[in-house]
Each structure stands twice: as C-alpha cells, then as structure tokens.
Design a protein around this nucleic acid. Structure first.
Lengths: 223, 223
DNA sequence: AGGTAACCAGGTATTTTTACCTAGTTTGTT
DNA sequence: AACAAACTAGGTAAAAATACCTGGTTACCT
C-alpha cells in the first residue's frame, strides 16, 4: 500500500528537495505541495485522494504551521502531521503537540530519519525522537509541579493550611474563627504567620500561594 | 544482538506467563524477575549482565512501580522501562512519564504488542500507543476552558481588569492609584465594582475570579 | 440631542486586615 | 527534664478594604 504525503513549506528549494527525497522511498508518494498554511488547507479540501501524512513547516507566511495544524486536525483528524522545523524551542514543540502533531522532524535530520518518521507515523500514529520526549516530559512536569513544591507545604502547619484554605473561600477572620471554634485573635495570628511564612503582602498573595502549592484548586469555586 | 529484559510484577502467574512469552521472542531474553520494587532495585544492582528493558508493574507491595522507576532512572538512566498496568487513569500515566517511563503496556494487550513495545523501546527508547499520546496531550494542555469563560470577561471594563490585575500583584489600592495616576477613591470605586460584578466577598474572591477568567496566570508570581 | 457606559473622585462610616508585641498550654522529641 | 514547635489568645494601633452615598466628565451611539 502506498503512503500518500502532502508537504507544506515556504522555502521552494527545500520543498522540492524533500519531494524528491520522499518520492524516492518505496510506496511513498507526494500527492501535492503547498507553500503556506492557507494553501495547504485549501488544497486538502479540494484533494480527492486520501492523504495519510502531511509534512508541515512551522514558519510560513500567510498562515503558519500551527494555525494550519489546528484547522487540519479538526477537519481531518486521521491525517498524521509531522512538523518540519529548524526550531528546537520547547515552546514550539509543546504547542504543536497540544495541537495534535504526530511527529517532529528537524530540518537537518538524516534522510533515513525522514523515511522512518513517515513510516512510523503511518503505522503507529506518532514518531518522536528521544530529546523530544524529554521536552514533553519537562512540559508535563510544569503543571503538576505539586511534587516539587509540596515540600514547601510543610513550611505551613496543618492549622495554618486549614486557615489558608478558608481564607481562599472568602471567609473573614471572624468567620473562620467561628467555624474552627477559635478566638478571632487566634485566626489573626495564623493569618499573620501565613503572611510571614509565604512572604505575601496581603490576602491576594495568600490566595496565590495556596494555588501555587496546590492547597486549593481554581475549579472548585463558584464565581 | 540479544535484548536483555527484567520483569517486576507481584502476581506470580502473570509474571511467569510474561516470562514465557517474552522468552519466546527472537533475541529477547528475561534475565531476572522481581516480585516488588525493592527486590527489583536490589537485583538490578547485583546483576552483572547489562539490562536493556524492564517490564514494570505499577501496583506492587513493599515498593510500588513508580517509586522503583524513579530510583532506577537515577542509577540506570539508559534502561528502557515499560510500565505494565491495568490502570488507564491519566494520573498514573502522566506521573510515570514524568518519572521517565519509556513505554506503557496494558496488561490485556496482545502478545504482538508486547514484542513490539520491547523492540521499539530498545530501538527508539520509547513506545506509546495512540490513546496514551492523547492523554499526554491533555496533560500538556494548560487551560482549554479559557474559551468558555472569556466571554464573561467582557463583563469587566478594561480599567477594571487593569485594577484587578494589580490587585492580584498584591498592590494596595493606594499603590494602584499611584501607578495609574488616579485618586485612591477611584481605585476603591473600581474595587467595589469588581466585588459587585464578580460577586466576590473580598480580595480573595477577586484573585480567584481573575484566575478563572485567565486575567492572570499563577506561574507568573514569585512566591 | 439625548442616552448610556466608562471613568473619575469625593464624603462618611464600619469592618477587616496588617503590624508588632507578649504569653500560656499542649504535644512530641531528645 | 529540657526543648522546640504548634496552637492558642490577648493588647494596641495603624492601614486597608468594604459598604453606601453623591456627582462630574468624556466618549460613543442612535
């Protein structure tokens, strides 16, 4: 079976080179080419042949690769998209993966890797190199940094955390005191310690601290 | 060349079955087995043969797979670890990837997939199935709810948003007034309107509102 | 030309928070 | 037994936030 490939890249020479290279692979055929994202999307709509793989450059005029990727993934979720790029910036990689990219290929990659990536994406739906997986890992670690930060949580005593959580629920010190059967002054004391320990200037800082250290979740609140 | 594999799983029957299966593959050999994470780590230290792949169960007594994984990745970063599990919960997948897992294999997978995953991890250092990639993507996506909530943002005027952002940066009304060349009373007026419009009871509520409506980002703050 | 919304700003009063103190009790640890 | 840490709670004051008013200006829309 033949793998049908489309390519989008604004650099004509590079594009033509890639077309020649890809067509030299067994059972792999370039169906059409585009020189920007807009054209790619249009040609894809018009194309009658089924496209399996798209080689997509990120930096293109008119409509860049990321925008095109998002559109394509909506209309043709089954097409495997391999990002072609010189950029190795984490940001690019992460945002393309979020958008649904199936693979990533450096423009200075070996010809063998091009072939491999196409076949892998066709077969397994994705192809990522090891350094990329590392970047993905880093990207994943960013959000649930709870693990790295909840050591600091131990900076706060259980009672302080409890008070902090109630502060984040928009209760005043007096209300918190009532809830916890404490004196207002005690709660104010905890509050002061919280400000000191977290290095915050006021309630706003406390809420942000609580969020950063996963003591509360944004979604839990009603407004 | 032979791929040397170790396996850790507390269920003896399953473990023995996997050993038989894996040994049936060409040029793949089980070197040793462990029935919990602790034993795996110990045996790995003692082993003289080079281990290429570890098949690792997550739920094990004594020391679970995740803990073992972290330890192993520190001492033997080049060993490819494939997680064996019945769990398909996102949480497990994400935390194992963060810990450096090289692949993921459902316990009800086809025997062919077991072989494939071992060879892929050995060759490419990782093997993930499509649904897993989807989960990784979801984990990478920061806050896709933005679209649903930023309609409400128009509830606040530009000036109000500006004031709100400064409130979240822990500035007092007086400081905000100074920054924006306004009277303190004006800022207090904006503050009042913010409380009214957002339905908050105090500053804590304002910060949470700002977060929910993506007017600020948690990561941007220092404490 | 009138209406509306955003923006600015003042008055007055109360509540809440923040700052800087001290100090007793309990609990757990060495 | 001594010690530290957590929890409790009080005093005093200043600063800030909240509540409820009023009113003026500008800009934009119809």
């Amino acid at each position: 079976m033949t793998i049908n490939v489309a390519i989008a890249d604004d650099q004509k020479l590079f594009r033509k080179g890639m077309i020649a290279l890809v067509n030299s692979f067994d059972d792999v055929k370039i169906i059409f080419e585009a020189e920007n994202g807009k054209q790619l999307v249009d040609l894809l709509q018009a194309e009658s042949e089924e496209i399996h793989i798209i080689l997509l450059d990120l930096s293109m005029p008119e409509m860049n690769g990321l925008e095109a990727l998002k559109i394509i993934k909506q209309s043709h979720p089954n097409i495997g998209v391999i990002i072609l790029t010189i950029h190795e910036a984490e940001h690019h990689i992460l945002s393309t993966i979020q958008a649904g990219a199936n693979g990533y290929l450096a423009k200075n990659a070996e010809p063998e890797e091009v072939e491999k990536s196409i076949r892998e994406v066709f077969k397994n739906d994705f192809y990522f190199t090891l350094p990329m997986l590392e970047i993905m890992r880093k990207g994943l670690i960013k959000k649930p940094q709870a693990a790295s930060l909840d050591e600091n949580e131990s900076l706060l005593t259980p009672r302080e955390k409890e008070v902090l959580q109630l502060i984040c629920k928009q209760f005043s010190s007096a209300e918190i005191a009532e809830k916890l059967f404490l004196s207002n002054r005690t709660v104010e004391g905890h509050r002061n310690n919280l400000l000191l320990k977290t290095g915050s200037r006021n309630t706003a800082g406390l809420v942000l601290y609580a969020l950063k250290h996963k003591l509360i979740e944004v979604d839990h609140f009603s407004n």
